[in-house]
Computed example of a mutant assay.
Amino acid sequence: MQHIEPERIGDWVRQQAQRPVLLDVREAWELQTANTRHEDMDLVHMPMQTIPARLHELDRSRPIACLCHHGGRSQQVAHFLAQQGFEVVNVAGGIHAWAQQLDSGIPLY
């Protein structure tokens, strides 16, 4: 499983044959506190604990970038998804790093 810095996400997106998914695995309150969008990715919110039960909702043909607060939960989810045959990367540093590197308008929490 690969880790990718938020500042490199645009390069990663451009390399994909299919439109990628930005899989946010944080809790709902976290998404309400701070969220992001990427015009070339579809945002899907699935809290970490729901992933096994909702695995069928993810398209195996689309690459996935996993995102959480600081990168720990998303790393675990990315590892799990990789074991299930998904093409997946972990956004290193999570939304905290995303806010610092790409979008200072995202609140830090």
Rank of each mutant, 00 (worst) to 15 (best):
Q49Y: 03
E7D: 15
H70A: 12
Y109F: 05
G94Y: 02
H79I: 10
F86R: 02
L31I: 09
R8E: 15
P107Y: 07
E30T: 06
G93Y: 11
S104E: 15
Y109L: 04
A17R: 11
G85F: 01
V21L: 12
C66T: 11
L31Q: 08
A99G: 05
M1C: 10
A99S: 06
L31W: 02
I64Y: 00
G93N: 15
R54M: 07
T36A: 15
L102D: 07
T36N: 10
P52M: 02
H69E: 10
R60I: 09
E30S: 05
L55N: 00
E57N: 03
T36D: 03
H3D: 11
D103R: 04
G71E: 02
R26W: 05
R8V: 11
R60F: 14
A34S: 13
Q32N: 04
G94Q: 04
C68Q: 03
M48G: 00
G72Y: 14
D103Q: 08
Q15C: 07
R8Q: 13
G94T: 02
R26A: 09
P6C: 08
R14L: 08
M48V: 00
R62A: 11
A99F: 08
A53C: 06
N35A: 09
L108D: 13
M48W: 00
S74I: 01
M48H: 00
M46T: 12
A65F: 04
M41A: 05
D103F: 08
Q15A: 15
A78E: 10
Q83T: 06
A78C: 14
G94P: 03
T50D: 08
Q49H: 04
P63L: 09
G105M: 03
H45P: 05
E7N: 15
V91F: 02
V13L: 11
P107Q: 08
Q2L: 08
R19K: 14
T50P: 10
L55K: 01
A78N: 12
I64H: 01
G85W: 00
I106Y: 06
D40P: 12
Q84W: 06
T33L: 07
V88E: 00
R8A: 14
E57F: 00
D40E: 07
C68L: 05
V21Y: 15
H69V: 13
G85K: 00
D11C: 13
V77M: 02
D24P: 04
P63C: 07
D103T: 02
T33Q: 12
A82S: 12
E39Q: 14
P52D: 01
I106Q: 06
T50M: 08
V88A: 01
F80K: 02
L31D: 03
R60M: 13
Q2N: 15
M48I: 00
G71R: 01
W12C: 12
V21I: 14
L22A: 01
I9D: 03
R73Q: 05
M41D: 02
A28Q: 12
R14T: 11
G94R: 02
W29G: 03
Q100V: 14
Q49S: 04
E27K: 02
A17F: 12
Q18I: 05
P6N: 11
Q76H: 11
P63D: 06
L43H: 07
H38A: 13
G10S: 07
R73S: 05
Q16A: 08
I95E: 04
V77T: 03
M1I: 13
L81T: 00
E87Q: 10
E5D: 10
Q18P: 02
T50C: 06
V89M: 04
H69Q: 15
